[in-house]
Design a protein around this nucleic acid. Structure first.
Length: 355
DNA sequence: GAGTTTGAAACT
DNA sequence: CAGTTTCAAACTC
């Protein structure tokens, strides 16, 4: 089952199918928003009861669909929030009719800045009430239990701006089911630290090509030569902004040099210059500490290009009004083609025989 | 696999 | 802002 929302805009029509965010689904010409000249027209077109003096509100549209309405400089933006109908399974977990791989794919395809764009707009409007820590989370029959720690920086998925998917977390609120609490938690995080969702590892200061830890580490006992240290883990040197004690993670450090000559450190391509950073960390995506990103041709650019292909395939399916199942199949087939090409190049670059 | 250590994030 | 607590990952045995 797919909700379909049609919103009039001037003489045209904007159609948005199932999506987590309309930014992903709306036609290119319309970009990410549907702008109405007056609130009355918006209400007429969508059934939305958005009021002028409330800059952001979740609107219940005709047919049960929820949309996030944002007043932006006098224009009205309607963003699809929950176009995917959901239901509770026998364990009271919220499920969606959209197949999970498809949902996950959409979630991953959206780059973190795009996802945060929506949140930033809310913060700019001041629409969300002030919240402090876990006490900000509503409690009640649908949200029982302890503070929702999956809506905190402890959770890698949340910290990187992603929804949890197939995680082992308890009472997870980092999902579409708890979108509002999630927004509040994000605001609380950003209140504490405006750069909370920025990648920890980024380019250094001007003129310095080497990446560095944007906040610096605070290690005390590890000498910054164990993976407890975020700098060491990212395979970069500690910098002047680090507040570590007894740091041995610097260019001339004999301990570091000894460590670098050990066999276990050779596989990741060494340490010098930090050119083999885990791309996941560099991008602010979830950490996969046990499965380090292999040294390969699968660069960030390649991943982005592959994602763009999948996105284009999804848009194509939408344009042709394909069924949900067919759309998923098309995207997966495209994924297979991308993977095949990547592996082909990978094998070729390593001088391996390509079947 | 269980227990310990560690440091980031959250809290006070 | 500093000290404490909580948490998840790294590490050790």
């Amino acid at each position: 089952m797919i909700f379909q929302v049609e919103l009039k805009e001037g003489g045209g029509t904007l159609t948005s199918n199932n999506a987590e965010e309309a930014t992903f689904q709306t036609p290119p010409a319309q970009e990410s928003s549907c702008k109405f000249p007056s609130s009355q027209e918006a209400e007429d077109a969508s059934g939305c009861s958005h009021k002028e003096n409330n800059p952001m509100v979740i609107c219940q549209l005709k047919g049960g669909t929820q949309m996030l309405c944002i007043d932006n400089s006098g224009t009205r933006e309607l963003k699809a929030l929950h176009l995917v109908p959901q239901y509770q399974d026998q364990n009271n977990y919220l499920q969606s009719d959209v197949p999970k791989p498809m949902t996950a794919l959409v979630g991953r395809l959206l780059p973190v800045p795009a996802k945060l764009n929506l949140i930033t707009q809310q913060l700019d409007t001041g629409a969300l009430p002030p919240t402090v820590g876990a006490s900000a989370f509503p409690s009640g029959p649908t949200l029982p239990g302890p503070p929702k720690m999956t809506l905190a920086g402890y959770c890698d998925c949340f910290a990187s701006g992603d929804f949890c998917n197939n995680c082992n977390c308890n009472n997870c609120c980092n999902n579409l089911r708890h979108e509002i609490e999630r927004f509040k938690a994000i605001k609380a995080c950003l209140d504490r630290n405006p750069e909370a969702f920025q990648p920890k590892i980024g380019p250094g200061s001007l003129g310095d090509a080497k990446p560095r830890h944007n906040r610096g580490c605070n290690c005390k006992r590890s000498g910054c030569l164990k993976n407890y240290c975020e700098c060491y883990e990212a395979k970069i040197m500690c910098s002047s902004i680090c507040k570590c004690i007894g740091c041995k993670n610097y260019e001339e450090s004999p301990e570091r040099k000894t460590l670098m000559t050990m066999p276990n450190n050779m596989e990741a391509g060494g340490f010098e210059g930090g050119h083999h950073l885990s791309p996941t960390k560099f991008a602010g995506l979830p950490k996969f500490r046990k499965e380090r990103w292999p040294s390969s041709c699968i660069s960030r650019e390649v991943v982005e290009a592959a994602c763009a292909c999948l996105l284009a395939q999804g848009e194509e399916a939408e344009k042709e009004r394909c069924s949900e199942c067919l759309a998923e199949q098309m995207i997966l087939e495209e994924f297979g083609r991308c993977l095949s090409q990547i592996l082909h190049i990978e094998f070729k670059s390593k001088g391996l025989k390509v079947e």
